[in-house]
């Protein structure tokens, strides 16, 4: 009985989460800009157009460059930050906790503009690389928070025991702390990738002429919508989901080997 209720709950939730996605897929199968569902003609011509277009691939490559760089850097910085945020008690921790969350209090469009002004002041021309820095300002705090969750209620005794057995600091971190943090790090990495991949307001100001996927989708929707827009969205989702699934599979493989 309860098993049934639980299955229904999760099933209903996942279904609801997919309603908009299915809607996007349906919209991509129309041949008109002004959809009246059910379509009169069903067609995949928008996909043919998207695949043939040079721009489609360019914006994906730019978005991938940004999101992969952001994920790697944010996981490194965020894991270190989480140790300071939650593992150790130290003087200045209170301030660290407060300052760390400040970037996410910023309305993103303003943060984007302010970062662009800063890059200009520093003489750095905006490109996808400056977009990486901009994303990190906003994403590192979030990854730090997510990784920190696993460190609250963390049993320090394990580390001490390892030290007593003669393990070096690095060995303790690698053998004891990291495995405990692993679920948080995986979640943090996932968060970093998807927040960067889907980000619009920061990219719009900081990526210069390297237009990433969400910016292209948004500008095309706002100025000249056609079924090409949902078709490119679907392609983008398949690409990003494929990459994340590959990453998860690779992690699982590594875990099985060790």
């Amino acid at each position: 009985m309860t098993r049934l209720v639980m299955t229904l709950w999760v099933g209903a939730l996942v279904t609801l989460l997919y309603v908009p996605i299915v809607s996007v897929v349906l919209a991509s199968l129309a041949n008109t800009r002004y959809m009246r569902f059910p379509h009169k003609d069903w067609t995949t011509s928008a996909y043919a157009e998207a695949i043939a277009s040079h721009t489609t691939w360019q914006i994906h490559i730019i978005s991938l460059n940004i999101a992969l760089s952001v994920s790697v850097l944010a996981v490194i910085l965020g894991t270190l930050g989480a140790m300071a945020f939650a593992r150790y008690d130290w003087r200045g921790q209170g301030w660290f906790r407060r300052i760390l969350v400040l970037p996410i209090f910023f309305p993103q469009p303003v943060l984007g503009l302010a970062l662009l002004l800063s890059f200009t002041a520093a003489g750095i021309p905006p490109s996808w690389k400056t977009a990486v820095i901009a994303h990190l300002v906003w994403i590192v705090p979030i990854v730090t928070l997510v990784v920190s969750i696993r460190l609250f209620g963390y049993d320090v005794a394990q580390e001490e025991a390892a030290s007593d057995l003669g393990a070096t600091r690095w060995q303790v971190f690698k053998e004891v702390t990291l495995p405990q943090l692993a679920p948080g790090i995986v979640s943090g990495g996932l968060f970093a990738f998807l927040l960067s991949w889907a980000n619009l307001p920061l990219s719009a100001f900081t990526s210069g002429a390297d237009t990433p996927l969400p910016v292209w989708l948004f500008t095309r929707t706002a100025t000249n919508y056609s079924p090409l827009v949902p078709a490119v969205s679907v392609i983008g989702t398949v690409v990003s989901a494929g990459i994340v699934l590959l990453a998860i599979a690779a992690l699982a493989l590594i875990r099985r080997r060790t």
Partner: peptide, 20 residues
């Protein structure tokens, strides 16, 4: 890059994107 409004693009140029 497609722009969406006159002021948002003017802002980008003002903030330094004249070099882009």
């Amino acid at each position: 890059e497609i722009h969406i409004s006159n002021p948002s693009s003017v802002n980008r140029l003002r903030a330094g994107e004249t070099s882009v």
